[in-house]
Amino acid sequence: MAHRDFKKEDFVKDLSGEYQLEFQEGNIGEGSDLIIERKNENGDYEVVQAEIKRHDQLIFISWSEPFDGRVLFDE
């Protein structure tokens, strides 16, 4: 599986108080299964069940707080 790393600074707070990441659909696969992993203090990754929405060729990942992590996807 391919992945794309992100940093907590990449998150933007939305009107509802959630933090969101935005990706272009073509950058992380179209219609593929996405897995969101959060990096912990040890540098290991753990799977989280973040909310994922798609709209107009964009993919939004929402979480209650920003974190360092990665998105896993099929190429």
Rank of each mutant, 00 (worst) to 15 (best):
residue 11 F to P: 05
residue 74 D to H: 07
residue 34 L to S: 03
residue 27 N to T: 11
residue 68 D to V: 07
residue 23 F to Y: 11
residue 53 K to A: 04
residue 57 Q to M: 09
residue 6 F to G: 05
residue 7 K to Y: 15
residue 66 P to Q: 10
residue 32 S to P: 01
residue 45 Y to Q: 05
residue 55 H to Y: 12
residue 19 Y to N: 06
residue 27 N to G: 05
residue 23 F to M: 06
residue 44 D to S: 12
residue 70 R to W: 06
residue 74 D to M: 06
residue 35 I to K: 10
residue 46 E to N: 13
residue 57 Q to T: 09
residue 15 L to K: 14
residue 65 E to L: 09
residue 71 V to E: 02
residue 18 E to G: 00
residue 43 G to H: 03
residue 56 D to Q: 10
residue 12 V to E: 12
residue 14 D to V: 13
residue 57 Q to S: 12
residue 75 E to C: 04
residue 2 A to W: 07
residue 57 Q to Y: 07
residue 28 I to R: 05
residue 24 Q to G: 07
residue 75 E to P: 06
residue 11 F to C: 08
residue 56 D to H: 08
residue 24 Q to P: 00
residue 25 E to Q: 11
residue 9 E to V: 10
residue 29 G to D: 07
residue 56 D to F: 09
residue 45 Y to T: 04
residue 72 L to Y: 03
residue 40 N to H: 01
residue 3 H to A: 08
residue 11 F to V: 06
residue 3 H to K: 11
residue 26 G to V: 05
residue 5 D to F: 15
residue 41 E to Y: 13
residue 16 S to Y: 13
residue 33 D to I: 12
residue 22 E to M: 13
residue 4 R to S: 12
residue 26 G to N: 12
residue 40 N to S: 07
residue 55 H to P: 00
residue 46 E to A: 11
residue 43 G to C: 09
residue 13 K to E: 15
residue 54 R to Y: 08
residue 51 E to P: 00
residue 4 R to W: 08
residue 13 K to D: 04
residue 4 R to M: 14
residue 35 I to H: 02
residue 17 G to F: 08
residue 57 Q to E: 13
residue 58 L to C: 05
residue 2 A to L: 11
residue 45 Y to H: 11
residue 66 P to K: 04
residue 47 V to Y: 09
residue 59 I to L: 07
residue 32 S to T: 14
residue 20 Q to K: 14
residue 28 I to G: 07
residue 36 I to S: 01
residue 41 E to C: 05
residue 66 P to V: 11
residue 57 Q to D: 12
residue 50 A to F: 01
residue 13 K to H: 06
residue 51 E to T: 06
residue 62 S to E: 07
residue 8 K to Q: 15
residue 1 M to L: 10
residue 12 V to F: 04
residue 66 P to A: 10
residue 3 H to R: 09
residue 61 I to N: 00
residue 53 K to T: 03
residue 25 E to G: 00
residue 28 I to A: 08
residue 32 S to W: 05
residue 58 L to I: 02
residue 34 L to G: 01
residue 20 Q to L: 12
residue 49 Q to A: 11
residue 18 E to P: 00
residue 18 E to N: 12
residue 28 I to E: 09
residue 73 F to P: 08
residue 27 N to R: 09
residue 56 D to M: 08
residue 46 E to Y: 14
residue 44 D to A: 13
residue 26 G to Q: 09
residue 18 E to V: 04
residue 47 V to D: 10
residue 37 E to D: 14
residue 53 K to V: 05
residue 2 A to G: 04
residue 50 A to W: 00
residue 74 D to K: 13
residue 58 L to Y: 09
residue 27 N to P: 00
residue 46 E to H: 11
residue 48 V to H: 04
residue 41 E to R: 14
residue 40 N to G: 03
